[in-house]
Simulated scan of single mutants.
Amino acid sequence: MTSDTREPAAPTLQPRNTPARVSFWSAASGIGLIVAVVVTPMFWLPYGSHYTFALLMLGAVAVPAGHLGRRRGKRPDARDRGLALFGIVTGWLLILVSLLVFVVFTGTLAALGLLFGTLD
């Protein structure tokens, strides 16, 4: 009497694509920061440089992590390729917005300096 009792196989979990998730959350945090600036513009004047720097850093994290997540997503058992693509696109947009804000702010200061410097 032999009984054929096999233990059920452990469920196979797909490995997490951690870089894709890091990219997604970094990009989502950047979007949240932009929304926070729009909702509370009174904080922009004293802390504008901090917001701009944070946008640049969040974008700088989202882009390489997104590319790494897309690369890891090519494996047959991988997932979260869409999150990685979202992080790449949004990360580049965050970098573009932060550079645009920097150029506009610097140009405005230069124009005000020229305007008030010539009124003497």
Rank of each mutant, 00 (worst) to 15 (best):
T18V: 13
E7K: 11
V38D: 03
H50Q: 11
G30I: 07
H67D: 00
A65M: 12
D80Y: 11
E7N: 10
Y51L: 10
L99W: 10
V39Q: 10
G117T: 11
L55Y: 02
T106W: 04
M42V: 05
S23Q: 01
D4R: 07
D4W: 08
T40R: 08
A110N: 11
L85Y: 06
T12M: 13
P19L: 01
A36Y: 15
D120H: 14
L58S: 05
F86N: 04
R79L: 12
D80Q: 04
R75H: 15
R71F: 10
R79K: 14
F24S: 06
L83E: 14
N17P: 14
T90W: 00
I95L: 12
R71N: 14
V97D: 10
L68V: 10
S26W: 07
R72V: 05
L99G: 10
L85V: 03
A111S: 08
V39C: 03
F43N: 04
T108K: 11
L13A: 02
G66W: 02
V61P: 05
V101F: 12
F116N: 04
G66V: 06
L100F: 12
L56C: 07
D77K: 08
V37C: 07
V89W: 07
L83Y: 13
A78E: 04
I88H: 01
E7W: 00
S49G: 15
A28Q: 11
L55C: 11
G32N: 09
P41N: 09
R72H: 15
V63L: 13
G87H: 14
F102W: 06
L13W: 10
R6P: 06
T18D: 04
A28C: 01
P41R: 04
G59Q: 09
P64Y: 00
P19R: 00
F24R: 12
G73R: 08
G113S: 11
P41T: 01
G66D: 09
G91M: 07
G113L: 13
A65S: 14
T90C: 07
G30Q: 04
F86Q: 09
V38F: 12
V63W: 13
F105S: 10
G73I: 09
V22T: 12
L96Y: 10
G82P: 14
A111W: 15
L56A: 13
L99F: 10
T108N: 08
F43P: 00
L93K: 05
D120S: 15
I95Y: 00
Y47V: 02
A54N: 03
W44S: 02
W92V: 03
W92M: 02
V22W: 00
G30L: 05
R70H: 14
I95T: 02
L68D: 08
R16F: 08
Y51K: 01
